[in-house]
């Protein structure tokens, strides 16, 4: 029996826009094993980013249960959910979302501000994370002094600096050229295989999905197919 890290049980999500109800996910159930590298694919509006947000604790389902590890995250309060995210999840976005006024090292340190670590310990860990993504020599650079690929590496370093179990990546290569995208995907794969991170990645790009262990296809809020990849 697989060791499931994430258990999604009959989850529905409906957004309200004024008086209009917009169903995005419908009675979706899914188990994701610990150590998995899963790609979520599907057309725009299929609900893949919504599912990713639910898994990462950025949003709550309208109904159903989401269990990550032993925690029912759909039942946590907003403040408890924030604390849970800081300890258990690393986020990687398409547009990197680094703070432009901070250096790479300071950006990576951000999640550690929520811990009781000393300044020197935070710095040490940030530099270690930057070393993992191959950017030790760019620690003092601001985002506008980095290439897109380097910015995404900094974002990945920020995602892993607090050693979370789970990485959620929303189109991490969507803003990069093919070669840089492959480097980023190789890095994610390394984090999965060597560092044991469970990764859930949303992508439109079939070549990106090929780097994952499995791909799931969504359409209109439902799972429609599953592919075994690499």
């Amino acid at each position: 029996m697989a060791d499931n890290l994430i258990k999604i049980d009959r989850v529905s999500k409906t957004y309200e826009r004024g008086e209009m109800q917009i169903p995005v996910l419908s009675e979706l159930s899914l188990d994701i094993a610990r150590g998995e590298f899963l790609a979520l694919m599907g057309p725009s509006g299929s609900g893949k980013t919504t599912l990713l947000n639910l898994i990462g604790g950025l949003d709550k389902p309208t109904s159903g249960a989401i269990t990550v590890g032993s925690e029912r995250i759909d039942q946590l309060s907003q403040s408890a959910l924030a604390k849970w995210r800081s300890r258990n999840v690393g986020f990687v976005f398409q547009f990197y979302n680094l703070l432009p006024v901070l250096t790479a090292q300071k950006n990576v340190e951000l999640p550690l501000l929520l811990t009781s670590l000393s300044g020197s310990e935070r710095r040490k860990r940030a530099l270690a994370a930057l070393a993992i993504v191959g950017l030790s020599d760019r620690a003092g650079h601001r985002p506008n002094e980095l290439s897109g690929g380097q910015e995404q590496r900094v974002a990945i370093a920020r995602a892993i600096v607090s050693d979370p179990t789970l990485l959620v990546c929303d189109e991490p290569t969507g803003d990069l050229d093919r070669a840089t995208a492959d480097e980023i995907l190789d890095l994610l794969r390394l984090l999965n295989s060597e560092h044991g991170k469970t990764i859930v990645m949303v992508t439109h790009d079939p070549k990106a999905a090929d780097h994952a262990n499995h791909s799931l296809h969504l359409d209109k809020g439902k799972l429609v197919s599953e592919d075994a990849a690499a």
Binding site: L58, Q78, S79, A82, K83, W84, R85, S86, R87, F91, N97, L99, L110, P111, L113, L114, R158
Partner: peptide, 15 residues
């Protein structure tokens, strides 16, 4: 505001 949203994503509480 988007930067502040990132802080919240990383786990910074509302307060």
């Amino acid at each position: 505001i988007p930067e502040l949203a990132i802080l919240k994503t990383l786990g910074f509480s509302n307060l």
